[in-house]
């Protein structure tokens, strides 16, 4: 293995709010999946005791709900940041409305998924396929909040969950809502596994420091790629990214 001698440019991709968002989100989802799984399949840890002596299942649910609120507001914040953050965090990255994004999606599939084509993908933030997947995940976040808070509305008097109460009759009742909520957990688990794998994969292949980018914010981009990006940046985004 050789080290590269190409000129690299340090690019500040993930601003602090995005990084904080990312890790809160990851921790919440971890907590929600674990507690959610237990809620769905409680282990019979206790036997022969009286109900008043324990509250473990109540605690599991409590953690789930606390994490749920955190997860929700964190997500609301990220949505807001999609309008005020830097070029890499903006909303238009995620929704493939432009032809160029679709072209890149196909490219990525050829290069990284099927590996039938060998070239470097130019994007500095998320590549278009990743962005699109994140967009789908954001929709999943939304659906998980709708189903979760929809169910929660029945057991809470607080204001926020009541805003979601309409979603339950919309799906015909709690049974369906709960089923969807549970199925989505698996979608999150599968996403997380693949996501982490791909982060490592990209680091391994591209050596741009992608893994640590979610910690420090910086990526190391080849100078020529960065230049090409500077040129097209004006055409793809109304506002140029800060460095």
């Amino acid at each position: 293995m050789k080290s590269r001698s190409v000129p690299l440019r340090e690019v500040y991709v993930w601003e602090l709010p995005v990084r904080i968002y990312h890790w809160i989100n990851a921790l919440c989802i971890l907590a929600l999946c674990i507690t959610g799984y237990i809620i769905g399949n409680p282990i019979a840890v206790m036997k022969g005791t009286e109900a008043y002596q324990n509250f473990w299942f109540g605690n599991v649910r409590f953690i789930h709900f606390v994490a749920a609120f955190l997860f929700f507001f964190n997500f609301v914040f990220r949505t807001y940041w999609g309008f005020v953050g830097n070029e890499y965090s903006r909303w238009y990255n995620f929704i493939p409305l432009k032809k160029s994004q679709w072209i890149e999606i196909l490219e990525v599939i050829k290069v990284d998924v099927l590996q039938v084509k060998h070239k470097q993908i130019d994007s500095i933030g998320h590549n278009s396929l990743a962005s699109f997947i994140y967009f789908i995940t954001f929709l999943m976040f939304l659906l998980q909040c709708l189903t979760g808070f929809g169910m929660y509305a029945a057991m809470s008097t607080s204001y926020l969950p009541q805003l979601f109460a309409w979603f339950v009759p919309f799906l015909g009742g709690d049974i369906a809502v709960r089923q969807i909520h549970h199925i989505l957990m698996w979608a999150f688990i599968l996403f997380a596994i693949v996501h982490v794998y791909l982060v490592f994969y990209h680091d391994y292949i591209e050596r741009r420091g992608i893994t640590s980018s979610m910690i420090g914010g910086w990526k190391f981009i080849e100078e020529d790629v960065a230049l090409r990006n500077d040129d097209s940046a004006t055409s793809t985004s109304p506002k140029k990214g800060k460095k």
Partner: peptide, 8 residues
């Protein structure tokens, strides 16, 4: 109460 206590 049994539910919250995890007694099933």
């Amino acid at each position: 109460a049994s539910f919250d206590a995890g007694l099933f």
